[in-house]
Design a protein around this nucleic acid. Structure first.
Lengths: 258, 258
DNA sequence: CTTGAACCTCACGCGGCGTGAGGAGGGAGG
DNA sequence: CCTCCCTCCTCACGCCGCGTGAGGTTCAAG
């Protein structure tokens, strides 16, 4: 009965590839105890035990460096597992959100029997839009809805950009400033507010009634209006209050007057 | 009102980095329509529309090459979404399995108050082992259990390897051969069977009663015996039947007799 | 004209190997 | 002894989506 293995034999027995064993040797994760005079790797029973441990830890989804640290003494297993579990949980949450979006999209596509070229983008675009318009209609009269739609149409492709790219980004930035403790009176926040008001004016034409209605729709159902079903209402409510505070506080001095 | 953007402005507005825009330009995903005489990138409204589409598709988790193909005409959106959904589903299933294992392990670790060095491996090892022994005890008398344990102990670290590395690998290989349509009488299958019987003899000492009991335990609860809670009983039952068939059929000729 | 910010183009790095290229060791058969 | 073929070895580049400098040009303001 043999008690040592050459690279190929170990690879075949373990289901790994020779290249993987070479790699693990190169990074010092699993170094064969011996070599023949010609430089051929010889794995012993101890190496096998280590291989088994590596496979066990790899099965937990740990990266190779962590596995090495684990085996070469020096990690707190409780913390390691707890942290890793947290990582896995967040990855799982992200994937679940994605799955929801995809399956909704898939349904949308299956429904429009005929499949043309940019059908994917159309469907992607349409998904959830009907709901957003319904919400808007609850807060605006038909004439205002038509005016909003007309202004959006006249902006062309830029409308999509302003609504779905720049606007969410402004919101994200407001959220970052807020959580960094920046006071609402800070000039950076004021610049954000100014840009957002500018964008809003593009769509509402400066009509206070329309913009109030739009704001009400966002307050009612941020996840519907933003088109992101995973959006947390709190992620919108708190920055909104922060931005309102910016609009109503006195400016902070920003260096000497010119 | 400006209708063009420089790299930095577009990056800031979209929340991407300048490097990302450079990269997307380099791979031809988003090339600015114009450049200044000095070579500075100038993005137009059309580029913005494309950027918006890219971000929308990226939000679905598609890779950049697929996104490019999508936008430059030439994919079936129905198939694309269906296939991608399938990918996401399998990733999700894998992650859920992993999460189950990790949380069980976490509980195991929390239970053994004191944390020593190789506690993680101990816990990993112990998880589910008690259940496997309970299953075994239902199929073997105490003397046989003791004999099994004694033989396993005398094998040392190699026992872990045989049980948890080589044995599952042999099973996986059997499953592959089976699904490839290889007949049970094929010499490759016979070699597998011979090796598995050899391994079994290492643990049972050739005692037919013990090996029958072990086989019964595996038939009853493969997921418990293998230590993999996600194991599908069918993944063991069918290869097992296949291997049994190999043991009871006549050999196929493998070239001319010597 | 000078400064400083913003822009440009290389080019390496990451993780975990896959996939050759090009060469040497080793056992079986002539 | 030589030849054949299989297994082993060591580089070294490629993947994906950028991050992160290094080192040089251009632009707008003072």
């Amino acid at each position: 009965m043999h008690t040592t293995w050459k690279t190929g034999a170990l690879a075949e027995a373990s289901g790994l590839t020779v290249r993987t064993l070479h790699h693990w040797d190169a990074i010092g994760l699993l170094t064969p105890s011996r070599r023949t005079a010609a430089g051929h790797r010889v794995y012993t029973g101890n190496d096998l035990a280590r291989l088994y441990q590596i496979l066990a830890l790899r099965g937990l989804g740990l990266d190779l460096e962590t596995i090495g640290a684990c085996l070469d003494a020096g990690v707190d297993p409780v913390r390691l597992v707890r942290d890793h579990l947290a990582e896995v949980d967040s990855a799982l949450a992200a994937l679940e959100t994605l799955r929801t979006r995809l399956s909704r999209l898939s349904a949308e596509l299956a429904q429009d029997g005929a499949v043309s070229g940019p059908a994917l983008l159309d469907a992607l675009h349409a998904t959830g839009r009907a709901a957003a318009q319904a919400t808007l209609r609850r807060h605006l009269n038909p004439a205002s809805v038509r005016e909003l739609a007309g202004r959006a149409a006249s902006l062309g492709p830029a409308a999509h950009y302003h609504l779905h790219v720049e606007w969410p980004e402004l919101y994200r930035r407001a959220a970052r400033l807020r959580s960094a403790g920046t006071p609402p009176s800070d000039p950076a926040v004021r610049r954000l507010v100014a840009r957002m008001d500018e964008l809003a004016a593009l769509f509402t034409g400066g009509d206070a009634g329309i913009s109030a209605g739009v704001r009400a729709a966002w307050r009612e159902a941020p996840h519907t209006m933003s088109g992101d079903p995973a959006a947390d209402p709190a992620d919108y409510r708190e920055p909104a209050a922060y931005l309102d505070a910016s609009r109503t506080t006195a400016p902070t001095p920003e260096g000497p007057h010119p």
